[in-house]
Computed example of a mutant assay.
Amino acid sequence: MIQDRKLEHLSICKNYDVNYKKSTGFEDIELIHRALPEINKADIDISTKAFGKKLDSPLFISAITGGHPFAEKINKELSIAAEENNIALGLGSQRAGIENPELTSTYTVARDYAPNALLLGNIGAPQMKYAEDAVNMLDADILAIHLNPLQESIQPGGDVDARGYVESISEICDLVDVPVMVKETGAGICAEDAVKLQRAGVDFIDVQGSGGTSWAAVETYRTDDRLLGEAFWDWGIPTAISTVEVCSSVSIPVVSSGGIRTGLDAAKAIALGADAVGMALPFLKAAYKGHDTIVDYVNKFNESLKLAMFLVGARNIKDLKESDLVIRGETKEWLNDRGFNTKKYSRRSNIDG
């Protein structure tokens, strides 16, 4: 049953090491320190309006859970924190709640406790029949469509027929009356697919690159035959690389997620072109500990983002997106081999400024 699988996913993410063994690539990104920032840190504005509502921080609590009675408590805690801090919140795949009304409250609890927050609904690419119900269930501001070919490939009985995804996504964009975001689930999005998504009518993209939670790892713990899962544990495009590929190829707002853990990671992602960043696993673990732990995590994230912005002289998110940085190592090699000019990031500011 779907709800049993949802509970297994929660338990595995809480109790096992499901992180990628390779990195996000952000260790290869170096922001250029400004010894003369010429700004007051207290005046730094980290708000964003890129996603239809003004958010006090570019932090998204990425899609985590729903579809099991236990998930209701987690989503309640996350919703209260999202409302209090005016940040965005994504819910897990809503298929379980649409097919089984007894599970609907594990999703609707989000709007109950976050009446003003930016909420993201969630369905799979081939699930067009669920699109309108998913939006209505949450009074969602954005409908997210998740892509998870890696997870489906490792998951016992997974759906590995991905024909017609682009057409389905395009039809969903025409069907619903809210903006649509397409998100990967931890293996990243390349430039070519990002262009296809924008042409299909998608309003936002969440790269969800590799380096954070590996769903191949999660599914590995659910099967006795671990050969496939262990072989593909680290499959995917590292988050920093996926962020550059997508931001350099489309003109729609982009969320960078996948292994981002601090405001410094976020600053690097935004300087690479992202409009916001997402995190899931840290918030799932914080939710088990309660409201105060979640809020403390948000506060520490925001403070470290402001500190990074202060050190590069960025007064707001727009300034941060124009900050100078250097791309090094394997990340530079990958991007250069793929035809992306990494030098364009290193001297964007006025040398006399």
Results as ranks from 00 to 15, higher is better:
A286S: 14
I294S: 00
P282M: 03
A267K: 00
G273W: 00
K268D: 14
M279H: 07
L272N: 13
G278M: 05
L272W: 07
D292C: 10
Y288Q: 14
A271M: 12
V277Y: 04
Y288W: 14
A271T: 15
T262E: 06
A286F: 12
K268I: 06
A274P: 01
K289R: 15
K285W: 05
G263C: 00
K285Q: 14
Y288N: 11
I270Y: 04
A271S: 15
T293D: 14
A287V: 03
I270V: 12
K285M: 12
L284D: 05
G290T: 05
H291W: 08
K285A: 11
P282Q: 03
V277P: 06
D265A: 10
Y297D: 07
I270L: 11
V298W: 09
A286H: 06
L264T: 06
A271V: 13
G263D: 03
A274S: 07
L284Q: 02
A276D: 08
T293C: 13
V295N: 13
D292W: 05
A287E: 09
G290Q: 01
G263A: 06
G273H: 02
L264C: 02
G273V: 06
G290L: 07
K268V: 09
A274M: 05
K268Y: 11
K285N: 14
D296P: 03
G290Y: 04
G290P: 09
V295T: 13
A267H: 01
I294K: 02
V295F: 11
T262Y: 03
A269G: 06
L272Q: 10
L281E: 08
